[in-house]
Write a protein that binds this DNA or RNA. Structure first.
Lengths: 197, 197
DNA sequence: CCTACCGATCGGTAGG
DNA sequence: CCTACCGATCGGTAGG
């Protein structure tokens, strides 16, 4: 019973997930409530029986994915891995979560700007938190001699940015035949030892 | 005479450059013609004496920056550098053009989706071209033993993506004290030899 | 879940 | 460069 119920998405869930796909395609502002309604075969006014507003949909999506990343990094940070191993695990987690939630993760790059308060502050707090944990690991690993880093902020941004393409719909199709393990291995190789022979 | 004229931006240029800043802030769809007009102190209807449409502004901006990158990479590709040196020069050029045209470059990540035909096809053609040239250099450098690359497409995407943060307004302020030469050196170090000691 | 409808705002035009 | 105005579309509500 419970299993069956968990397997079937609620009307609300369907709306929110369809919205994520559309936001991903055209952006939050260019997606109308009518677009969302059309994609699930109802009239726009009917959506409001399940959600409060367009803004609520955006907020639910972005806080969900932000918390997902945050929980992932905290679990790894709590472990007894070396800094080197922690970074490896974080990158692998980041890749996995990105791929499993492609359409939602993509909203992190731009559509978060359309969040209104108090969700905007909440989202930014979680994001800052994530970067602070990662920065601390890089910094500690530098001091322990595991990493060679000349500029912490630049390195942080290069690493995070280098992962910000996996969930891209256009690109994903080109590499979807690669497999998760191989994708992880290839990216880790570049980040850890570069491409120069 | 000519010098003075070149130094003063035309009304049209002012509109287009102000629009780039606003598009960068809120996205193309959320920026109204009224927003653009307000930012330069006129009424929205007055803009149409200088530009054809909102869409024309977007098209001018994106084709300008796409051509800038394209010319940059072609000049380097024509040179007699090694593949290793070519890649270094391309990354440096990419960083320089990104920073010199911050607000316009940022549009490349998302707002190009709002281009209409025929500009959309033109933009995508130039972008594909750029990636093809870079991919060829990576491929040749791999065969010549200059690069160690296991997946061409993944490597291409990781490198390009790792540069896609420099023009970000939020981040830029944090690293604006670093200086261009040092920024280039740090990023090249990561891409070429990674962060592992 | 629908029809009917709301005020607000959109990009853009006419005409001076 | 402005005022005045256009039809279309927006997110959302009322009421059944």
């Amino acid at each position: 019973m419970i299993i069956l119920k968990d397997l079937s998405r609620s009307r609300r869930q369907i709306i929110i997930e369809e919205a994520a796909v559309l936001f991903n395609d055209k952006g939050y502002s260019s997606t109308s409530m009518k677009d969302i309604a059309n994609s699930i075969g109802v009239k726009a006014a009917s959506l409001y029986n399940h959600i409060e507003s367009k803004q609520e949909i955006l907020s639910v999506l972005l806080l969900f994915i932000a918390n997902k990343f945050q929980e992932g990094i905290e679990d790894i940070d709590k472990s007894s891995y070396s800094f080197n191993e922690k970074l490896k695990e974080i990158i692998k987690m980041h890749i996995r979560v990105s791929i499993e939630n492609r359409h939602i993760t993509a909203l992190i790059t731009q559509d978060w700007k359309h969040l209104e308060e108090p969700s905007l502050t909440e989202f930014k707090t979680i994001r800052t938190n994530y970067q602070t944990v990662l920065k601390k690991i890089l910094s500690n690993g530098m001091e322990s001699g595991e990493f060679k880093i000349t500029h912490l902020d630049i390195t942080l941004n290069v690493i995070l940015s280098s992962l910000r393409w996996i969930y891209n719909t256009e690109i994903y199709d080109n590499i979807s035949n690669v497999g998760l393990a191989e994708l992880e291995r290839t990216i880790l190789e570049i980040v850890f030892s570069g491409i120069e022979e």
